[in-house]
């Protein structure tokens, strides 16, 4: 599918849910061009010169924050990183006050990571800047889903009809939700597997199949996405032990044989080796985990570029 639209409708990227398949394709196509920029000796284009992007990271992040910052720098934007620790947030300032104060310094875009769902929308509803959701609680993480889709499309040549299985802590995963929205919009088939304690209510209504075992999920899969067990987000009542989890849902080379030849093994990171995935698989021939990270920069460049373009046109 080639691009049928040339711009995004919204000033913000709050999630995949509001995007159309055409918009998703536009972002992925745009990212292809930016991937090439990252392979040049001089990895920089002037697209966002003179624009200020604030990275408002209210929750721990390595990959996403660094990836956004690199993407911004490669687009020649001025960037500023803001984290909760060491800021007035520790003095009790509310998110809205923090954001309005930052807004008073006229940023063009705000990238926000926050542990509470809906926080990016709170800002987007109130601020003229473009707001990009870099992960809000268990709600959405749209650029992760876009980079996952970019990776699948680059490797398999399509998204339509691809069988994607996601395994792990579905309940607490924003990556799963954004991926379900994206993959189902693009015609892929999504299967989820986890102990029932980690499957949230009525998730089938999002257009996915839920199975009860890792083997069932692997059967016929073109792509296997393993998810981190987010121990910090749940009490002790969902899983007896990580040992038992590894024995029932951990991805090992033996189990992976059930998947199709050439299966892609993905993980949004950070990985817990020996919990959801064995090192032999994470580092093995089917793993595209580090490619995902590389592609993340290109996809984020595309998102920043397109939102800035929409911005300039106003």
């Amino acid at each position: 599918m080639r691009t049928q639209t040339s711009s995004l409708r919204s000033k913000d990227l709050l999630g995949i849910e509001p995007l159309t398949p055409e918009e998703i394709t536009l972002i992925l196509d745009t990212a292809e061009g930016f991937k090439e920029v990252s392979e040049r000796p001089v990895k920089k284009v002037p697209a966002l010169r003179g624009q200020l992007v604030i990275n408002l990271f209210m929750e721990a992040s390595t990959r996403t924050r660094v990836s956004f910052e690199i993407a911004e720098k490669r687009l020649s934007a001025d960037t500023l990183n803001f984290t909760a620790s060491g800021s007035s947030v520790e003095k009790g300032e509310t998110l809205i006050d923090t954001a309005e104060n930052l807004m008073a310094m006229h940023p063009d875009m705000i990238v926000i990571r926050h542990k509470h769902p809906g926080s990016p929308k709170m800002l987007a509803d109130r601020l003229p800047a473009s707001v990009i959701n870099a992960g809000d609680g268990a709600h959405e993480h749209p650029t992760q889903a876009l980079l996952d889709a970019f990776t699948i499309r680059e490797r398999l040549g399509r998204l339509q009809g691809v069988n994607v299985s996601m395994i792990g802590d579905i309940a607490h995963s924003r990556v799963v939700r954004s991926n379900i929205h994206l993959l189902t919009k693009m015609g892929a088939h999504v299967t989820l597997a986890a102990p029932p304690t980690l499957i949230p209510a009525e998730i089938e209504r999002m257009g996915v199949r839920v199975v009860g075992s890792l083997d069932e999920a692997l059967e016929g899969a073109d792509v296997v996405m393993m998810l981190r067990i987010q121990l910090e987000r749940q009490g002790k009542l969902s899983l007896p032990s990580l040992r038992e989890y590894y024995n029932t849902f951990g991805l090992t080379p033996e189990r992976l044989r059930r998947a199709r030849e050439g299966v892609l093994v993905m993980h949004p990171g950070p990985m817990n080796r020996g919990v959801e995935i064995a090192s032999d698989v994470a580092d093995g021939p089917y793993s595209v985990i580090l490619e995902q990270v590389t592609n993340g920069v290109a996809v984020r460049m595309a998102v920043l570029y397109l939102l800035a373009g929409g911005h300039l046109a106003e």
Partner: peptide, 14 residues
Amino acid sequence: EGYYSTLLGMAGIP
């Protein structure tokens, strides 16, 4: 707790 808590990623009250 239901479809919308799942969709929105918010903790549910069953």
